[in-house]
Computed example of a mutant assay.
Amino acid sequence: MATPFQLTVITPEKTFFDGETTQIIVRTTEGDIGILANHTSLVASLPSGPLKVMQASGEYRLAAVSAGLIKVGGNKVNIFADAVEWADEIDIEWAKRSEENAKQRLAAKNSERDLDLAELKLKRALNRINVHNTLMK
């Protein structure tokens, strides 16, 4: 049996997850990484991407993470993210509307700041759609 470790996922609004798991897979800016108990210490940036959390049943639960940071050490993993949603809780219609809105804002070519925000919103919407679609396969 795999050794459990503590996983805490925090957003500005709430503690999204706080419990034990035996494995996670998360996307960093350097690529996807798997984390097991006693993983070497690590701090890495997280772009918008999927997070897979191993449940007690032996199956993964999938979530969509918006940009953030992961800190691993002392048999604990902390993820600090702008937003996180379980794949089965994503409102896919809202995500598609967000994608279209972001594309319209990009096409408008307003200020540099507006373009940067629209790009981030597009990445977040596409991540939510991809994670939701992965769950539905």
Score class of each variant (00 low, 15 high):
residue 15 T to E: 15
residue 26 V to E: 11
residue 85 E to C: 05
residue 41 S to E: 11
residue 90 I to V: 14
residue 78 N to P: 02
residue 16 F to Q: 03
residue 43 V to N: 11
residue 63 A to G: 09
residue 37 A to R: 11
residue 76 K to Y: 07
residue 68 G to S: 06
residue 54 M to L: 14
residue 109 K to F: 01
residue 81 A to F: 10
residue 83 A to W: 01
residue 67 A to M: 11
residue 38 N to F: 09
residue 91 D to H: 14
residue 11 T to V: 06
residue 73 G to M: 02
residue 76 K to G: 07
residue 113 R to T: 09
residue 82 D to K: 09
residue 2 A to I: 02
residue 120 L to S: 07
residue 119 E to I: 04
residue 79 I to P: 05
residue 56 A to V: 02
residue 20 E to R: 02
residue 130 N to P: 02
residue 127 N to T: 14
residue 42 L to I: 00
residue 58 G to D: 03
residue 51 L to G: 03
residue 94 W to N: 13
residue 25 I to F: 02
residue 5 F to I: 01
residue 17 F to S: 10
residue 39 H to P: 11
residue 113 R to E: 11
residue 105 R to D: 04
residue 74 G to E: 10
residue 61 R to A: 15
residue 52 K to N: 12
residue 83 A to H: 03
residue 41 S to L: 00
residue 94 W to F: 13
residue 126 L to S: 00
residue 78 N to I: 13
residue 38 N to S: 13
residue 28 T to E: 09
residue 55 Q to Y: 01
residue 49 G to P: 14
residue 58 G to Q: 01
residue 119 E to N: 15
residue 26 V to F: 09
residue 30 E to W: 01
residue 12 P to S: 06
residue 59 E to N: 12
residue 62 L to R: 08
residue 108 A to G: 02
residue 87 A to G: 09
residue 34 G to W: 10
residue 27 R to W: 00
residue 113 R to H: 09
residue 80 F to S: 13
residue 37 A to W: 08
residue 60 Y to S: 05
residue 15 T to Q: 12
residue 93 E to R: 11
residue 13 E to Q: 13
residue 99 E to V: 04
residue 36 L to Q: 11
residue 21 T to A: 05
residue 9 V to P: 13
residue 107 A to Q: 15
residue 110 N to M: 06
residue 12 P to E: 08
residue 4 P to W: 04
residue 74 G to Y: 06
residue 43 V to K: 08
residue 111 S to V: 14
residue 3 T to S: 13
residue 22 T to A: 12
residue 50 P to M: 08
residue 51 L to F: 05
residue 122 L to C: 09
residue 56 A to D: 06
residue 39 H to L: 12
residue 88 D to K: 13
residue 9 V to A: 08
residue 121 K to L: 11
residue 94 W to M: 12
residue 2 A to C: 00
residue 16 F to D: 00
residue 92 I to C: 03
residue 42 L to V: 02
residue 128 R to D: 04
residue 57 S to L: 05
residue 88 D to Y: 09
residue 2 A to S: 10
residue 23 Q to T: 00
residue 127 N to V: 04
residue 93 E to K: 13
residue 115 L to F: 08
residue 72 V to P: 12
residue 117 L to F: 05
residue 133 N to Y: 08
residue 36 L to H: 14
residue 30 E to C: 03
residue 121 K to Y: 03
residue 6 Q to D: 13
residue 75 N to R: 04
residue 118 A to L: 13
residue 39 H to T: 08
residue 132 H to G: 05
